[in-house]
Amino acid sequence: MPVWTLYGIRRGIATTSWPGKDGPTQPGVLGLPRYHADRCRDNCRGCVDVCLPGALSFESCEAEERLALDYGKCIGCQLCTEACPNDALTKSNDWAFGVRNRDDLIWTEALQSPPAEEVTRKIQKYFGRSLHVRHVDAGSCNGCESELQALNNPYYNLHRLGIFFTPSPRFADLLLVTGPVTYAMQGPLRETYNAMPEPRWVMAMGTCAVSGGASGGGYSCGHGVEEFLPVDIYVPGCPPNPAAMIHALLLLLNRASQHVQGGQVAH
């Protein structure tokens, strides 16, 4: 019979040094496409026609049509990057899309001033460096669950950051919701939220939870958590990779800074 303790010791430490030390945690994994407005020409609509969740659209702006991009609806299918003849939309490794304001996911020409940090000071005061999370699956495709489960594998080892999943909403500080919210999960979602002690926070994890994504709408789905509960952090991605999830959790705790403002990634 194998001695599992010895097995574990022999196997050694498998945990990534991120986010303590910088470095790519997900080599090769594509993020959401990057938009280069100066290269968009002729209003060809190539990208809009292949965008299933409607993240790309045309909006009227001073008598001319202009491309509008909402990362909150983007599922990272990369079809627009293949459809664009001018490379206005390119594949990228931009994955840290967790934001505090929904508007920050909408692409704008000019960068806005950094978001106010008052809300998050409060959370630092209450929770210091630890956080307990209750997850509710409100109709996901299980891609988000698979990556949430990966947070507790030895590589990401979420416990080392003082963040824990808790079975009961009574002990939870954060409600982490995946999925567009189906009609049948509306009740259980509300009940879970109501069972949490105050102060409490809500995170919309994945494009479905942010805006409905590829499955929102229709006869049985809503368009994200916002329709039912106040959301504090939005994390688009289909699914967000585990590092993006950790970044969003640290952002909530004010232990990481927001990378995306006005739909643009700060470099």
Binding site: P27, G28, V29, L30, S146, A150, N153, P154, Y155
Partner: peptide
């Protein structure tokens, strides 16, 4: 779970998507 993670990382490097 570590082996599954390594397998997903191989997927990511090959196709750009862990899934």
């Amino acid at each position: 779970k570590l082996l599954a993670e390594q397998s997903k990382q191989i997927n990511g490097m090959l196709t750009g998507s862990r899934f």
